[in-house]
Design a protein around this nucleic acid. Structure first.
Lengths: 275, 275
DNA sequence: CGTCTTATTTTGTACATACATTATCGCACC
DNA sequence: GGTGCGATAATGTATGTACAAAATAAGACG
């Protein structure tokens, strides 16, 4: 019986439903509140997220339970469950067994700034991207530099690299790579692929730490980047870790008025909602 | 038959399975590759993500299909489907009908930096957080300031605010709020709750744009923040939008050596994997 | 030999069912 | 009146089943 009752996914109108199995429902055919676009669980997600984003369901408020929602929208409990569980996973809702489902509060502090590869940024701006390896040396941790999260004596590759946009220096990069974790890097010449991209392509990572600060350029950095000493620069420190081992530690230094971090963060469900 | 075959969720050992339905499988009881912790679909997620993160399944490689995985792990296809579909949603895998499931390539450029409320940051550092409203005025867009993404003539609230940590100024904030979108803000005195937090609590947003730059402090900003002119400062611009209407536009200016953005981004599945 | 059509494989969605899990509510009992 | 404990209501997980949708592969036909 339900086989016939399922909404056809080709004919998006949803107007051909049988009604034998839900004689009680006053609306015969169209499912109220749903837009008929795409899979049912997605329609329910949109419907529920819409209620929240439009302010009809306030933060902290309790939603109807799965049973009620399922009869409200005219779908099975599992379909409702999938939609609601996804919204909960995305942070829109909070669910507690026995207690119910609530609109999440304070989800708004989750601003995030995507940090992209400098080569991509330059290329997308339509400029010519180049880089130069300024220095490359193999050493052991604790000798000339100390990398706190790696044991002393670990073999390390140290790389200094300058990134240019249309011939103008925009970013200096000092990178340490853990040769115990990534021995292949020792054989890589980096004559066409910059170290950042090479690592990103070759080595998986499971977590990364970032610190972004503003600093005044020192004399030598100013000379390298072609600015006057004291110019404001963006300093980004990144350490990536995989399987509990530090992979690489990088310091980027970028000229303040030639480089900025920017990006749009979008609420997951807003994407699907086109809000 | 399958009802009995289901793994008990209380006895986590998983040692009580019947084997009538899979006589071909040589391992009789324990499901191979699974750790017995938590729900089955989560175990499968960990098992699969582990194969990838440990490098046993390389980027671009094709995975066994759902049928094969289900008999490999000794669970139903739906359970496998749920696990794999979640991994795909998290960006670990790419799925194409008829073609199969593949390990995603190039997922590594997705570094993200969380941007937190300054009050939270100061409080977590164990310092005393205070703020002062320096200026507050109502005006119309285009009069003294122009907010590009809002129509001219729209009523706007402009706020200048200084944030302090243990009495030391660390951040200056200049904020514009769209009074058409958030009329309630006109009545809010902001004597105990800072504007940032008030807005975050009151108004939902569906997308936000950030730009982070490094700038040298101008004379007046330097005076406000108590640094010498020219000191490197972090400049953050944020515009939040909801239902296609700009809600608020903020400029934060923070002293370089008193404030930094930092945060850890973790691969979703790595969280569950404890890698 | 190329092109169109048809078959097949694989993932995607929906529903039913059953039971597990967990927090809350309310009542009995001290 | 508090306290514990069992009933209960809600979500969570697992499986079976049945199709739908999409994309590739294979074959028919010009």
């Amino acid at each position: 019986m339900q086989g016939l009752a399922r909404q056809s996914l080709t004919d998006r109108g949803g107007a051909e439903r049988g009604l034998a199995d839900r004689a009680a429902a006053p609306q015969p055919d169209f499912r109220p509140g749903l837009d008929g676009k795409g899979p049912l669980f997605g329609q329910i997600k949109r419907a529920v997220a819409g209620q929240i984003l439009r302010g009809h369901w306030q933060a902290g408020e309790r939603l109807p339970n799965e049973e009620q929602l399922s009869s409200l929208y005219g779908v099975s409990r599992q379909t409702v469950h999938k939609a609601i569980a996804l919204l909960a996973r995305e942070g829109f809702l909070v669910r507690r067994r026995r207690a119910g489902t609530f609109v999440a509060t304070g989800r708004h502090d989750r601003f995030a700034l995507p940090i992209e590869d400098i080569g991509d940024v330059v290329a997308r701006a339509g400029s010519l991207y180049e880089f130069r390896i300024l220095d490359r040396r193999s050493l052991r941790n604790g000798e000339a530099v100390r990398w706190p999260d790696v044991p002393d004596g670990t073999p390390i590759l140290s790389l200094d690299c300058l990134h240019l946009s249309d011939g103008t220096p925009i970013q200096f990069e000092r990178r340490l790579v853990n040769l115990d974790a990534v021995p292949e890097v020792a054989a890589e010449p980096f004559d066409s692929v910059p170290p950042s991209r090479w690592l990103v392509d070759q080595v998986p990572w499971s977590s990364a730490e970032h610190t972004v600060r503003a600093v005044n350029a020192t004399a030598d950095m100013a000379a390298l980047l072609g600015v006057e000493p004291g110019a404001a620069c963006l300093s980004i420190r990144r350490q990536t870790v995989h399987l509990n081992r530090a992979i690489t530690l990088v310091h980027f230094l970028s000229v303040g008025d030639r480089f900025s971090l920017s990006g749009a963060s979008i609420t997951d469900s807003a994407t699907e909602l086109n809000l």
